[in-house]
Amino acid sequence: MQVDFSMENIRRCLCLECPVQRESRCVRDKKKIMLLITQQDLDSAMRMDTDRVPGVYCSTGRAICRDIDPHEECLCSGCEVWKEHILSESDVSDYFCIKKISR
């Protein structure tokens, strides 16, 4: 399984909408940083490092925010990135944000 960490995948990723992350202060703070970068910088893609983006965990591994709620519903199976890369057949087919994946 190889999913690129790219602006295209960041835009299509459902992680930012996931109930698992809904109450996370860390995720809210990271969203604000992402918004600021995209509003102020035309080269925002160059500044979207994995430590700034609370998502695309199928590419980066486990979530960078530790205050997410694993008891909430996961949206991975409805994500276009998940479908495109047939992640249902991977070793970790759900909750990419919680389970460590090999890259």
Rank of each mutant, 00 (worst) to 15 (best):
R12S: 11
R12P: 04
R12Y: 06
C13Y: 13
C13S: 14
C13A: 14
L14H: 14
C15E: 13
C15I: 04
C15R: 10
L16I: 13
E17H: 11
C18W: 08
P19S: 06
P19N: 06
P19R: 02
V20H: 07
V20N: 13
V20I: 14
V20K: 09
V20G: 07
V20Q: 09
R22S: 09
R22V: 07
E23C: 03
E23P: 04
E23L: 04
E23N: 13
E23T: 10
S24R: 03
S24G: 05
S24N: 07
S24L: 03
R25I: 11
R25G: 04
R25D: 05
R25L: 10
C26T: 13
C26I: 12
V27T: 15
V27L: 05
V27I: 14
R28W: 08
R28D: 05
R28V: 08
R28C: 03
R28S: 08
R28M: 08
D29T: 03
K30D: 06
K30T: 02
K30I: 01
K30E: 03
K30M: 03
K31H: 12
K31W: 06
K31I: 07
K32H: 10
K32E: 15
K32M: 10
K32W: 14
I33P: 12
M34C: 02
M34H: 03
L35I: 15
L36P: 03
I37K: 02
I37D: 07
I37F: 03
I37C: 02
T38N: 04
T38P: 02
T38A: 05
T38M: 04
Q39H: 11
Q39V: 03
Q39E: 14
Q40G: 06
Q40N: 15
Q40P: 09
Q40M: 11
Q40A: 05
D41I: 11
D41T: 15
L42D: 12
D43Y: 11
D43S: 08
S44F: 09
S44I: 01
M46E: 15
R47C: 03
R47S: 06
R47Y: 15
M48T: 09
M48F: 07
D49W: 14
D49Y: 08
T50H: 11
V53I: 07
V53N: 01
V53H: 00
V53Y: 00
V53E: 00
P54W: 00
P54G: 01
P54Y: 00
G55W: 05
G55I: 02
V56S: 02
V56K: 00
Y57R: 01
Y57S: 01
Y57E: 04
Y57D: 05
Y57L: 01
C58L: 12
C58E: 08
C58M: 09
C58R: 11
S59L: 00
S59P: 04
T60K: 04
T60N: 04
